[in-house]
Simulated scan of single mutants.
Amino acid sequence: MADHQIPDSKPRVPLAAILTVFAIILLLAAIWKWSSMLLMAFGATLIAIALRGGASLLRRLTGIGLKPGVLICAVAATLSLLAVIAFAGPPISAQFRELLSSLPQAWQQVDDWLSGSSFGQFIERQLDNAQQGGNGSSAGSSLPSIFGYLTGTISSIFGKIANLALMVTVAIFLALDAQLYRRGGLRLVPLSYRDRAGQIVDEIGKALGRWMAGQALDMAVVALATFLGLYLLGVPLAPVLGIIAGLTNIIPVVGPFISGVPAVMFALTQGVDMAVYVTLLYIVIQQLEGNLLMPLIQRFAADLPPAMTVLAIIAFGSLFGFVGVILATPLLLVSIILVKRIYVEDVLGDRQDD
C-alpha cells in the first residue's frame, strides 16, 4: 500500500515577504533615529523652494540666470536680517530694559486687579498653598540648579543657531542645483515607477511653493496689521511685535498665542486696560485673517482641511517637539499628496478628478 503524504496545512511565508517586513522595520527605525536630520532636511528644502521662487521672479523681471538669482536672494535675505538687527537692536535693547524696570509696577497692577475679584483671590490662595507646600529650600541652595539651567539654555541657543546656519547652507546648495538632487533621488526608484515618482515629486514641489507663497502673503498682511494696530494704541516695540506676529502666524492655532504673549507683556507696562485692548486687537486680526484673508489665499494655494491641520499639529508636535509644530502644515500637505497619489490612485485604483 503506497504511503500517502499529508500536505502541510500551514502555508509557508515567502522569503521575499519576510525580507520586505524587516526592511520596512529597519526603514522606520532609521527614520525615527534620524528624525532631527530629516526635519532639518525638510526645512532646508522649504528654504530652497523659496530661494528658487525668488530667483525665478528675478529671471522674469531682469533676465538674470537662476543660479546667480539664488545667490542674490540668499545674500539679500542675509543683509536684510543683519540690517534689521543693526538698526532695531539698540532701540529694542533700550525698550526691553524699560520693560524690565517697569515689570514690578505692572505686576502690582495685575495683583491689584486680581485682588479685587473673587477669581483672582482664588488664584492667590492656590499660589500661597503651593508655596507653603514646597520643600523650603533657600535661594542660595537653588543657585547651582539655576546656573545649570542658564548654561543649558545658552548651549541650546547656540546649538539652534548652528543648526539654522547649517540648514540655510544646505538650502542654498539644494536651490543652486535642484535638478541634480532630483535626478539622484529618482535613481533610487525602480524603473517601472520612476516616471510616476517624478510626477509626484514635481507635484509636491509645486504645492509647497504655492503654500509658501500664500503663507508669505498672509504673514505680511498680519505683520502690517499688527504693527499698525499696536502703533495706534501706543504699545512699545510695535514694529518688532508686528514682525513676530507675522513670523509666528505660519504656525496655525498656536502662532497667535506665541506672538500675543510678548505684546500683552509690553502693554501691561501701561496698565491692565492697555493689555485688554491689545488682546482684543489680536483677536480681531486673527478672526479677519482666518475668515477672510486665508480663504482667499487658499484659492490659489494649498487648501488644507482645518481639522486635519489641528490634528497634524498635535501629532507632529508630540513626535518632534516645537520643530514639528512649525513644520506640521507643510508635512501634512506632503502626506496628503503621497496618500492620494500612491495609495488612493495607484494601490486602490481610484483616479477620480480632484
Rank of each mutant, 00 (worst) to 15 (best):
Y193H: 08
A178M: 13
V170M: 10
S192K: 10
L180K: 14
S192G: 11
I200M: 01
A175N: 11
L174F: 13
A165Y: 03
D195Y: 07
I200R: 02
Q199E: 02
F173A: 09
A171S: 12
V170Q: 00
Y181E: 03
V168C: 07
V170T: 05
D177S: 15
R187T: 14
L164C: 05
T169Y: 11
L164I: 10
M167H: 00
R183E: 10
P190E: 01
L176D: 03
G184Y: 10
L164N: 04
L166N: 06
Y181P: 09
D177R: 15
R187Q: 15
L186N: 04
L166T: 05
A171L: 09
G185I: 07
I200V: 07
R182I: 15
R182H: 12
F173M: 11
L164F: 11
P190T: 01
L191R: 15
R182T: 14
G198H: 00
M167N: 00
L188V: 11
G184Q: 13
Q179T: 12
R183N: 12
Q179S: 13
L176I: 12
R196C: 00
L174T: 02
D195F: 07
L176A: 08
L186A: 06
F173I: 12
V189L: 07
L188C: 13
P190I: 01
G184D: 07
R182P: 10
I200L: 02
D177T: 15
A178C: 11
S192P: 08
L164Q: 05
